[in-house]
Design a protein around this nucleic acid. Structure first.
Length: 599
RNA sequence: GCCCUUGUAGCUCAGUGGUAGAGCACUCCCUUGGUAAGGGAGAGGUCACGAGUUCAAAUCUCGUCAAGGGCUCCA
């Protein structure tokens, strides 16, 4: 059985949740650095912090480290641990620290020293190695388990995270209290690999990215397209029900539109270049907002019309730098589930609550039910006056309070044009993904001079809210695929039932059953390969078809099918009518499985 | 864009300078078989692309493109 949430028995604390792991990992990075400097005397040390699952250390070394180097380094680390070396904290004066660092010829450490304040501490590791460090650490390397750590990879990283500065060699490692924890960690990594949407995308024939077409451009194959369409249908219906209207807008438009919007000034690096058509320059759209704004401005609006809620599955193209593309998660052409709400100032809170409700309704349909919410407030560089910012920010806060959702405040983290709410979802293996965003915008209505006629006949500026729930269909599809490990819920499966005829004699019966499924809107097929049943089952399971229906002489005689469900196991023979009704209902009610209620 | 690694059949990969390989998938034949691979035969590749070195390049060198692990970026 491969239930979507095959979780581990052994709990694995994060570093931030365990003082002991923090010490182990931090000390491990020192052991790593000591080992590297022993084997590579030219390597200069920089920083070596813990991460949530392990640690890393950045070195400046003339030669990049190889896989073979990692093995040697790991062995050396084992030796250091075996020597049961004490780690001791020394508080020193700035002068002494400087002298010690200079004696070692470690320019990066000198730079770090210049940036820290007293007390200045360093940690020794045995007699002959030490590192400038705030700690804390274990007292002795005997507290480190040589069988519970691993060096994972080597990667490039910039000094101080600044791409204009030197590129260093970063060695990543992981360390745990026990070998059992390490084994569990490795199992989870493999689980993540098994769920990788890029692998599932090709195994299940969902989508591909073609070299000849270019990086970051997605080809949706029939199976992926079918599931995407089901997501879109659900999304559209939910939006109509929530009081939205849908728009279609062009993919290109006159460049001047992007001058007016301001994108040309601060976003041009992320845009595909303009194209000359006749006497005008056109721009492939990197976002939908200006189009919705133009639609708003196409006629004079009354306050009675507000709020206006417009949504669009809008396909946009953005120039992403080579090397940043990643499967469906980061692409150059993608479809946003974009919407814009134009409303009166006193409608903000109500509209935000409606958006949060809709977001919850839509995300929970894909079994994302745990959220992490961030409210980002006014940054230093921003436009608009205080009163509007206060009104808007308080509106967001009140909406969150009314919804009863816990949230964190990212002070000063908002866009220059307005405050925002970001929502992260947690997937089946505990990873967080940011998809949904709600942003207030004081900029575009100003730039496009949007107005409505108020009750007193004066012209007023509407409040504009941007929001996306999936963010991008591509990215969400990737996250959802990994969340389900490719085992889509029944209602989303591109192929829902595969009929497996045991012999050719029962083909006519299978054809007749197939016709009934199709008439009922159930996505069924027959495996006509002529292979033996064992092979048919195997192929069906590999493609993660939710329901396999075995049809042999017995079933043909009794108007039945023997049902094998990925989620519910072998259910034995079932009447045609029962099966039809259960599957049709599962589609209508968008169920995970047609058989849960039968159990 | 930067560092490292990789690119061979639809997929997963082997092949270290001398005529291109395997398993699965595909096509055909035999088999009509009851819950995770029945047997046989066949077809399928400009070894990512371009240049260079060499009598000879999948193999060595350089460049381009793309992918993977990271960094940076993702208003």
């Amino acid at each position: 059985m491969s239930a979507p949430s095959a979780v581990a028995a052994l709990s694995l604390p994060k570093t931030s949740e365990s003082e002991n792991l923090l010490k182990i990992r931090h000390s491990m990075s020192h052991v790593l650095a000591m080992a590297v400097q022993k084997l590579f005397p030219k390597a200069q040390v920089t920083i070596g912090p813990w991460t949530e699952n392990g640690f890393y250390y950045d070195f400046d070394n003339p030669e990049p480290f190889t896989e073979a180097d990692l093995k040697a380094i790991k062995k050396e680390m084992g030796k250091i641990i075996g020597r049961r070396l004490p780690l001791e904290r020394l508080v020193v004066s700035r002068e002494e620290a400087e002298a010690r660092i200079k004696a070692q010829n470690e320019p990066y450490k000198l730079e770090i020293l210049a940036g820290i304040t007293e007390p200045i501490s360093l940690y020794t590791l045995g007699e002959d190695w030490w590192d400038l460090c705030a700690g804390p650490h274990v007292a002795n390397t005997s507290e480190l388990n040589p069988k519970a750590f691993e060096l994972e990879s080597v990667a490039g990283a910039y000094w101080r995270g600044d791409e204009t500065k030197a590129q260093l060699q970063r060695i990543y490692g992981t360390a745990w209290e026990t070998p059992e924890q390490l084994a569990e960690y490795k199992r989870r990594k493999e689980e993540a690999l098994r769920r990788d949407h890029r692998r599932l995308g090709s195994d299940l024939d969902l989508f591909s990215i073609e070299d000849e077409a270019g990086a970051g451009l997605v080809f949706w194959h029939p199976r992926g397209a079918r599931t995407r369409l089901l997501i879109e249908d659900f999304w559209r219906q939910a939006h109509f029900d929530a009081g939205y209207e849908l728009l279609y807008t062009p993919h290109v438009a006159d460049l001047s539109l992007w001058k007016t919007s301001g994108h040309l000034d601060f976003y041009s690096e992320s845009m595909f270049g303009p194209m000359q058509v006749d006497e005008r320059q056109y721009q492939l759209k990197p976002m939908n907002c200006p189009f919705h704004v133009l639609t708003y401005a196409s006629t004079l609006r009354s306050y009675r019309e507000l709020p206006i809620r417009w949504a669009e599955l809008g396909t946009v193209y953005r120039y992403e730098r080579p090397g940043v593309m990643h499967g469906l998660m980061r692409v150059r052409g993608f479809t946003q589930d974009d919407a814009h709400v134009f409303c009166l100032p006193d409608q903000i809170t109500g509209e935000i609550v409606r958006i949060l409700d809709l977001t919850e309704q839509i995300l929970s349909m894909f079994d994302f039910k745990t959220y992490e919410i961030n409210l980002s407030t006014r940054p230093e560089k921003s436009i608009g006056d205080d009163a509007v910012w206060d009104l808007a920010t308080n509106g967001l806060i009140e909406a969150l309070e009314r919804k009863g959702w816990a949230y964190k405040i990212d002070a000063g983290g908002g866009a220059f044009y307005g405050p925002k709410i970001d929502l992260k979802i947690e997937d089946a293996i505990g990873r967080m993904w940011q998809c949904s965003t709600i942003q207030l915008d004081f900029n575009l209505p100003e730039r496009f001079d949007l107005e409505y006629v108020a009750a007193d006949g004066t012209r007023q500026r509407p409040i504009m809210i941007h929001r996306a729930i999936f963010g991008s269909l591509e990215r969400f599809f990737g996250i959802m695929t990994e969340n389900y490990a490719g085992d889509f819920p029944f209602w989303l499966a591109p192929e829902q039932i595969r009929l497996l005829p045991v012999t050719d004699e029962v083909r006519p019966y299978a054809e007749q059953l197939l016709a009934r499924f199709k008439a009922a809107g159930v996505r069924a097929s027959i495996d006509c390969s002529g292979d033996r049943l064992g092979k048919l089952i195997r192929n069906g399971e590999h493609m993660k078809i939710p329901v396999l229906a075995v049809i042999g002489a017995k079933e043909a005689e009794t108007n039945q099918a023997s049902v094998r469900s990925r989620r519910d196991g072998d259910l034995g023979p079932m009447d045609q009518q029962t099966l039809l009704e259960a599957t049709e209902r599962a589609n209508r009610e968008r169920l995970l499985s047609p058989f849960a209620a039968l159990g």
